[in-house]
């Protein structure tokens, strides 16, 4: 079985982001970037299939600038066999990303396309669903457990009401939620080995993908802030305040 995994470069989740004073975006230069945490979980899942002998080959794919190679190298250090880099310096919105992934999936013919449920920069939560729609494949989003058996997958999904289990025919797109697994820490020898693994470069043109109509970002602003309130010293004071506000 072949598995494809998408890997997005995003500002590290520990960074407190800064908004540019002119509202043109967030400060990205000189800021630590990492693999989107949900994509790490997706990669980890593919590795577990590989180690269990369920997956023969795992291919990582990213769309992004040169710097995104760093995240592909991380994916290779996890144990992915090879990687594909679709190079573009323009930010790619989900529908365009999905068209790229559709083209890659048609070329690579994986049984499972693992993706993160959302990228923590733009928080769109769209790309996996759009990719499966374009491919006419089943989708199983927000996965917290995946059981593969031959031509189908049983996926447990974290939804508002609880845990839902779906059975989907393969090939399918599955998007990873937080509790699917805990990604391993990368070890130096693996990082060294990853340097020798192949990365294939491509462009949107090579794939014959046309960028979709975009949403235009008009400005970026800080969210409405909450003022820090008061500190109370005792439960009595707390109860008094709550009663004052009519909350208890």
């Amino acid at each position: 079985m072949k598995v494809l995994v998408s890997v997005k470069r995003a500002i590290d989740y520990n960074v407190r982001i800064q908004i540019k004073p002119d509202g043109s975006g967030v400060v990205e230069n000189g800021v630590k970037h990492s693999m989107n945490p949900f994509d790490e979980i997706a990669v980890e899942q593919a590795m577990r299939w590989k180690e269990a002998g369920t997956a023969e080959e795992v291919v990582a794919v990213t769309i992004g600038p040169d710097a995104a190679k760093e995240q592909l190298r991380s994916a290779l250090a996890f144990g992915c066999d090879r990687a594909i880099h679709i190079k573009t310096d323009e930010p790619v919105q989900p529908l365009t990303a999905a068209r790229v992934f559709e083209a890659i999936a048609q070329k690579e013919e994986p049984k499972v396309f693992m993706m993160g449920k959302q990228a923590i920069d733009d928080d769109s939560n769209q790309t996996g669903q759009m990719t499966s729609a374009l491919l006419e494949w089943p989708q199983a989003t927000f996965a917290s457990e995946i059981e593969l058996s031959g031509e189908t997958a049983k996926v447990t999904r974290e939804i508002d009401a609880g845990l839902e289990t779906l059975e989907v025919d393969l090939p399918a797109v599955i998007t990873a939620d937080l509790r699917l697994n805990e990604p391993r820490y990368l070890k130096l020898p693996d990082i060294m080995k990853a340097k020798k693994k192949p990365i294939e470069d491509m462009s949107l043109d090579d794939l014959g993908v046309e960028a979709a109509a975009r949403l235009e970002t008009l400005k970026t602003t800080p969210p409405p802030t909450r003022e820090a309130g008061v500190r109370v010293e005792s439960v009595d004071e707390l109860v008094a305040k709550l009663k004052e506000k009519g909350l208890v």
Binding site: L95, N125, Q126, T127, Q129, A133, T141, F142, I159
Partner: peptide, 19 residues
Amino acid sequence: TTFGKDLMPRVAAKLGVAM
């Protein structure tokens, strides 16, 4: 909701539009 998050992007892609 998780219902809308799962569903709406698929609808958008099928209509060929951004979301």
